[in-house]
Design a protein around this nucleic acid. Sequence first.
DNA 1: CGCTAGATTGACTGGTCAGTCAATCGCCCT
DNA 2: AGGGCGATTGACTGACCAGTCAATCTAGCG
Lengths: 204, 204
Amino acid sequence: MTEARVPAVDKRRAILEAAIRVFARQGYHATRVSDIADEAGVAYGLVYHYFRSKEAVMTELFTERWSLLLAASDALYERDIPAREKLDGIAGFIIDSYKHDPELMKVIIIEVTRAANSFGATHLPEIRRAYDVVAKIVADGQREGLYRAEVDPDFVAMWFYGAIEQLLSGWVFGLMPATDEEFDRARVMVVETLCLGLERRGPG
Amino acid sequence: MTEARVPAVDKRRAILEAAIRVFARQGYHATRVSDIADEAGVAYGLVYHYFRSKEAVMTELFTERWSLLLAASDALYERDIPAREKLDGIAGFIIDSYKHDPELMKVIIIEVTRAANSFGATHLPEIRRAYDVVAKIVADGQREGLYRAEVDPDFVAMWFYGAIEQLLSGWVFGLMPATDEEFDRARVMVVETLCLGLERRGPG
DNA sequence: CGCTAGATTGACTGGTCAGTCAATCGCCCT
DNA sequence: AGGGCGATTGACTGACCAGTCAATCTAGCG
């Protein structure tokens, strides 16, 4: 009774999801477009009907999720809660994203965020926007006198993301146990240790 | 009057150094073997006289420097100095390596250490060995009661390297100012903030 | 019914490059 | 002088793959 334009099976979506699996399994460079098509159960040419290029597929995967992270970060930043909880919220969002779709996060981290040469270069602006929110949170914390003034907020932002990416990499490659308890433990540990490192010491 | 076998110009070395420049400029995947040969001022085929493959060139670049880091880490670990100084020594070694040959460090970080798919996978064991030294330092610190016992040493090790890699990436891509003062400041900041985050709080 | 337009197919093309190899060079030794 | 051998050369081959395109299919519509 409703939308007449939407096919019973959305092949476009099928292609995107197949791409996640194949990119996660073989890496972007090692996947042929035909691999994506096969995995999606569609003809080779259909990939080019829906996407301009192999790169465009990757870009859509990244942008779709990264924009969620940016939105969540902005929302967190605006809220009237302690800096620490904002950072915890961001760390939590990323880790939840991993819990929710590990393959997609694997692809994003490996092929974009840490791939400073290829997609990392293309998407630098969006990536930096995420860093900037963290830097702003830290800067606010310094202005309120919570955090030591000597540390550069931009530096902390890079640190924060560097640590989280490394963590996810550890899970992705089985260097560290990847259970739900570990996820929560890791999240607490990053934020707690980072904040302890940043906080001004008492009166002494 | 001396070594007869060594040519006046060591072409093998020239190829390695050309490779550093070209890999740094274009990235491993985007460099053709002919680019390396041209940059070295040498015929295409000579690259294959000295190296089994393009990959072998990269591997030699990585292994040569990484083994220095491992040796330095081990030496630092054995010395009878505070944990904090050991960590500072490792951070310092890496940052000095960057100061000494930024292009080589750029290549190692981007193409190996952070390239978990390609060379990162191949060299995982060596990379982990570097992490392990940091983990051992932290574990010792915990045993001595300096550091909080709740944090997982392996986790700290990943964190430490994640942060430093991110820093170097920031310099490499011009996201952060890369001057000698910045290098020293960054080194102090990483180690100081990390240790403050790890240390046990006074009596409370 | 036929018509149109988007969906779908897969064979084919063009360009790229890693790695091979046969030929030549230059140095040293006898 | 001339033989031997590693160093050096660069044209060539074989494989691979992103992207194109003309053909076919399907569904709504008047």
